[in-house]
Design a protein around this nucleic acid. Sequence first.
DNA 1: TATAAAAATGAAAATAATTCCTATTTTTTA
DNA 2: TAAAAAATAGGAATTATTTTCATTTTTATA
Lengths: 125, 125
Amino acid sequence: MRKNYSKQREEIKQAVLEHRTHPTAEEVYGFVKEKDSSASKSTVYRNLHELVAEGVIQKVVLPQGIFIFDGDVSEHSHAVCKKCGAILDIPLALEKAQQAMAAEYGFQMSSYHVLLEGLCKNCTE
Amino acid sequence: MRKNYSKQREEIKQAVLEHRTHPTAEEVYGFVKEKDSSASKSTVYRNLHELVAEGVIQKVVLPQGIFIFDGDVSEHSHAVCKKCGAILDIPLALEKAQQAMAAEYGFQMSSYHVLLEGLCKNCTE
DNA sequence: TATAAAAATGAAAATAATTCCTATTTTTTA
DNA sequence: TAAAAAATAGGAATTATTTTCATTTTTATA
């Protein structure tokens, strides 16, 4: 277990936790640059990867193949607005699916990713 | 509407429809090459893209960001085996989610993507 | 059928996101 | 405080995909 976080590591972690917008690596890099202009991209990518491995943040892929980072590591799903791109966290649980998958397919489901697409509240008003 | 399919276009379509393994673009390229060694990658990518736009096949992204192609365009979900990589089609419908999303978040859900991960039957035996 | 116009192709270059490499800097340890 | 370990910046390398474009193939039509 790592005892201390380096300055950059802490800034990268905070950038993901504070910005609840589900930033991409590039966006995290932008946030970190604001505070420490000497920060490099490789450090951002490396630390994001390590934070994911530690379970501090999670990496989610959007249907277009873009990766976003989420400071909320609890099991939840996402809804992406096709117009503004906003990403909502939704507590959509698929516990029932676990048993159904085992019973019907003999598939031992260990995790799931649900991604909804549509229009968010703002974009339909 | 396109009347006829070119030779390559037809081979590319067939490769996706016949191989129910959910191939990547690279794999489709491999299948097409077997029948027509002169086929190029750009043609495979272009046609896959067009077939998706036409709704003949669909493109799905896996959590690692890899794109796979599916000849079954009906709304269904996928379960990926973490051991062997097998991809199962599963009729997991989220109709209820549609109303719930509208009622709770004002989100007009138009489509969804569900991806389960775990171990398939073969890999647990 | 011959031919002009349109569409599709192959090959290679360009792109974009991410990972890798490495010399240097920073931090930790004792 | 010195040696060892860890982390960094910056750039090169990688990989999957897209774009470009000259050539080939197909289609339409005179």
